[in-house]
């Protein structure tokens, strides 16, 4: 270890200890030093992750690996307790249910529930280099059922229902040009705005699809429509980008609030 890294480590460790002690002394609750430790640890991990913006460093790596490890383990434990213990065992055996202290569901016993056990074990065969091919069977089952299930759902929600939503009148409450201009209304739900929205939806859908139509060269009017399509796509991506910025800033605000409020207590 280099001298500078030792100094950095010592500084961070002493700051951590200081924060722990100070937080422990001033926090109210049944276990002040435990609370103090937890808040300090959370603050340390937050700062460790943020330190990546300066440059890659061991503290960032530590925090990242900790996060990956903890979330994987948490997901695994929860998966075991909610899927195997929560869903499967209560339908299979009252003795095992009693062992795990879950309610045995009377009358729900079904021999078919043995199949998922077998498939689950086959899936774990992946870990064995010799019997790894066995895991393809349950995978095939998963892929097949998911594809079948999704095919119908997507076709219905993202295809048929979306066509349904595109079928909208372009002229709303139309009583001729004169009437339209003399009664022009700029409110968000007014005739003008609604007509414009419907036009954007219709043109956007048609031109967007034309852009993704690969069987015809994009020349002439078709090419122009496809140009409109790409513009609409770009605007969508811009909106998406903007939303992402907002989302990321929200997370930053969340972390900064944590640091200032829960850790440093400079705001209430």
């Amino acid at each position: 270890m280099k001298k500078t890294s030792m100094v950095v480590f010592a500084t961070i460790a002493s700051l951590f200890l200081l924060s722990w002690i100070v937080k422990g002394m001033f926090s109210e609750g049944s276990s002040p030093y435990l609370d103090g430790f937890l808040v300090t640890l959370a603050a340390f991990l937050t700062l460790a992750i943020m330190s990546f913006l300066y440059k890659d460093n061991p503290y960032y790596k530590f925090a990242e690996h900790l996060f990956v490890g903890v979330s994987a383990a948490y997901a695994m434990c929860l998966g075991f307790w909610s899927t195997i213990v929560g869903n499967l065992i209560p339908r299979l055996s009252s003795t095992v249910s009693d062992f795990f202290q879950v309610n045995y569901i009377e009358g729900d016993y079904n021999i078919f529930f043995v199949i998922p056990i077998i498939f689950g074990i086959l899936l774990l065969m992946r870990l064995s280099p010799k019997a790894g091919w066995l895991s393809r069977w349950p995978l095939a089952f998963i892929v097949g059922t998911t594809a079948g299930l999704n095919f119908v759902r997507y076709l219905r929600s993202d295809f048929i229902n979306q066509i349904n939503s595109t079928i909208i009148p372009l002229l709303i409450d139309w009583n001729g040009f004169g009437d339209f201009f003399s009664n022009m209304n700029f409110s968000a739900t007014g005739q003008l705005v609604m007509m414009f929205s419907n036009l954007v939806i219709f043109v956007g859908v048609v031109c967007g699809i034309i852009y993704f139509y690969f069987s015809k060269e994009h020349t002439g009017w078709f090419g122009r429509a496809s140009k409109v399509g790409i513009w609409i796509l770009m605007i969508t991506f811009g909106a998406s980008f903007g939303y992402t910025v907002m989302g990321r800033i929200s997370l930053l605000v969340g972390r900064i609030t944590f640091l200032f409020k829960d850790w440093l207590e400079i705001i209430s």
Binding site: S157, N161, Q162, N164, S165, T236, A239, S240, Y243, T244, M246, G247, S250, V253
Partner: peptide
């Protein structure tokens, strides 16, 4: 969350009746 909000707008208003997108 804001990141996915734009992808959900097509479902409004027929398939979802309202949408809160991100902190805004």
């Amino acid at each position: 969350a804001a990141v996915v909000a734009p992808q959900l707008y097509p479902y409004y208003p027929n398939q979802i009746l309202g949408l809160l997108g991100g902190v805004k």
